[in-house]
Structures are given as structure tokens and as C-alpha cells.
Design a protein around this nucleic acid. Sequence first.
DNA 1: GCGCATATTGACCAAGCGGCCAATACATAG
DNA 2: CTATGTATTGGCCGCTTGGTCAATATGCGC
Lengths: 219, 219
Amino acid sequence: MPGRKASEATRREQILKGAYEVALRRGIGGLTVRAVAAQAKLSHGLVHFHFKRKAQLVTALLDWVLATTTVLQIPAGVAQIPRGHDRLRALLRQEMGRLADEPRRFRLFLEYWALGTRHAAIRATISAELYRYRAAFRTMTEEMIRTAPTRYAGVTADGLAAVTVSFINGCAVQAMIDPAHFDLEQYLAAVDGIIGWVWGADQGDQVAVAARLASTSRR
Amino acid sequence: MPGRKASEATRREQILKGAYEVALRRGIGGLTVRAVAAQAKLSHGLVHFHFKRKAQLVTALLDWVLATTTVLQIPAGVAQIPRGHDRLRALLRQEMGRLADEPRRFRLFLEYWALGTRHAAIRATISAELYRYRAAFRTMTEEMIRTAPTRYAGVTADGLAAVTVSFINGCAVQAMIDPAHFDLEQYLAAVDGIIGWVWGADQGDQVAVAARLASTSRR
DNA sequence: GCGCATATTGACCAAGCGGCCAATACATAG
DNA sequence: CTATGTATTGGCCGCTTGGTCAATATGCGC
């Protein structure tokens, strides 16, 4: 029964939601116009009416996923944490937990990431998103460098943010393959161990100097 | 001209090599039996003769890639580094550099990783490989925990190895999307900053205690 | 030189794909 | 109530895909 009309925006949303569910189930490679239409309960012709080409649907889906994903929320409780290191640690926990909780969503994002290697438009979108995500950490990393210049000698805020993001991504990648057996608390404990913020960020520099003195005097 | 025979192993190798090149170029999703046959310069029928189903070819390709990739070489120079922290750092540099140098190979691995979410056999292979890779770091992380038990209180060697691997993977993921602009030295400098091993692993515990005392006495 | 097992080819098939389009149902303006 | 424009449908086309198979070339034991 043709003719049941809906507003342009509504239909696009409906189709994109269907596409999202199909992509979660079968991956981007398994995304077909007909499967999306079936999921959204409408004809495949209509999908082509709203998205002229399949490639348009794929890129629109990426935009939709990014738009409906809270990039990096900094809760009020976290924002009030005084020291940069502690704030960063709280955010690390939040983001790792968030990504580990939605392994399928992260997988979809990774698939787009890999796709970006071959498709310039997707690469641009992904790069921009990565830049935004990094930038969200920059105020924190700037503060860290400012309060411990010796420790972070020669390190830029961007570089430190990049490392932070790589930490989160690397965690999500491992959580993705086996979400059930991923132990966030164990993981965070190990992170705490390997990262030197047990010492406290504001005393970082003094401690670093003291430690190096102690180390040399011992030899 | 049919009939030109070759040994089973040789043909399989030839086909897998072709499959590898196609997968690097088009990704696993773009891998077709016909494209592989064309790349290997033989008929598509023959590919089906040696690999009954396409799925067999895909899994065999993963095995082949893993078999021909040096998982984790520990060079003699690195093995002689006395302190666990320093040795780990040298390995981090090596592995990050290695993965950043072969972004396409790592992308293929990531694609398999994502595929593993839906295919049990591939997931098993990937998980086993991840386990092997983690295990290669374990002797080092064990030593780190042994020499600094306070710092790594409640942390297992496996957990620490997992974090190390996630560091490497997260780095490779970011290097993959834009290999040309990835600055390994900047990245490693930031890693040095965020990780506390500037203090030295063997004095880690004493420093940690001293720092915590200093931190509390200051308040 | 002669079978015999087998590696190899290319034609063929059914299924599924993206994309196009005429027919049609609907909402709205007049 | 009618005309008009548009959303919607389903059939269709051309193409590619994975997979099968008869035909055939090839190497090898005898």
C-alpha cells in the first residue's frame, strides 16, 4: 500500500535507525539496502528515494552514529576534581567503561575506521571525530604539563591527549573481542600501577627530582 | 590450458599470497574468489578446488598472516637490558614502530578482529593470538611487579600485560588512519611522561612510599 | 606408450546485489 | 471534488557473486 507519507526527516531517521541495527548485526560489509528496508519495514525503493546511492546511506549512518553518541561528557562530579591527573583518571574509567559496555557500537566505529583507509570522505569524518575526542582531553593534559613541566619535558598537550585516547581505544579493542571476560577493575588497577599518578600530579616534579637524586646517589 | 600441475602446498601458498594482496587492497569485505584468482593468475575454479568454500579461504588467510608475522621478537640488545621497565619501554618502541610501519597489515588484522565478533572460529584464532602476544610480555610484567610490589599492589602480571598490549594497539589504531602524520617520537615522549618509569623500576617502591609521605605531610 | 588419478579450466547456474522506473496511493491546495 | 505534486511500492534489469561440474590437459607408475 503505497502513499503513506511521512516527513522527510522522520523517514530518514527511521531508515538510519534500521541501518544502524543491521550494521550492528552484520557489520558494514553485510549492510544491504534491502536488509535496511526490511528492518525499517518499508520497501527498498524508498530507501533509494531518500538516499540516492548506497554510499550516501553508509556515510549518513556514520554521521548519525557520531551525532547520537555522546562524544565525551564530563560529569559535574568529575569536573570538580581539583588535580588534572585525578580528573583524567576518572575520565579514563568512565570512557573505558562506556566503550566496554557497548562493544558492538565500538566495533561499528572500528569498521568505519578501517573503511576510512580506503574512502577519503569517511576518513575525513573519522579524523575530525578523533580530533574532537582528543581536544576534549586537551585542557586536562595542558594542566598536567603545566603542573609538572619536568616530568612532561618536550611533550605537547596534543601528544599527551593522543596517548590518552590510544589508551582508551586499546582497552576498548580488547574488551570488544570478549566483553564477558573483560574485567574493568583489574584493568584500571594495572593502569594505576603503570601510570605514575599515585604520586600525585602537583608534587610530580619535586618527586621526580627527588627520585632521580636518590637513584643516582645509590649507584 | 588446464593440467599444469603444482604441488598442493605450492598452490595453496600462491593462492593465499594473492588473497593477502587483495585483502590489503580491498579489505576482507572486498575479498572475492575471482579477484584472488586473478591476482594469483589462475582460474577461479582452481581456488574452489583447493579451498572448498570461501570461508575456508578467509580463515586460512588469517592463519597464514599470523604464521608469516613475527609475533614478538625480542632482539638480543633488548634482552640484555637489566631493568624490567626499560626493557618494556624498548619493546614498546619496537612494537609501535613495527605496527605504525605496516598500517595496512594492522588494518587487515583489525578487520579480522571485528569479524571475530560474529564468527566463532575467527574469534578463537584471534583470541589465541592475543593471548600469545600478551604472554610474550608476561615475564617482563612479572619482574616489574616483583621489583615494585607496592606500586603494583593487587595487579596481576596478566593484567599488566593486557594494559601494555592495549597501549600498543591503541597506538597502532591511531597511526593507521593517518600514517604519514604519525610522529612516533612525539608519541613515545608522551608515553614516557605519563608512565612513571623515569623514576626507575627498582627504586619504584621506595619512591612511591616517599612520595606518599611527602604528599600527606604537605596537607 | 598407455591408462589412471588428479590438477585445471571455463561455462554455467541460482541468488543476491544496487539501481531505475512506471504505476499508484496519499496529502494538500484550489 | 478535483488537480497537482510527492511519497511509496514492487517489478525489473544488468551485474557480480559463490559454487558446481563436465571436459580436458598433465604427470606418473607401469
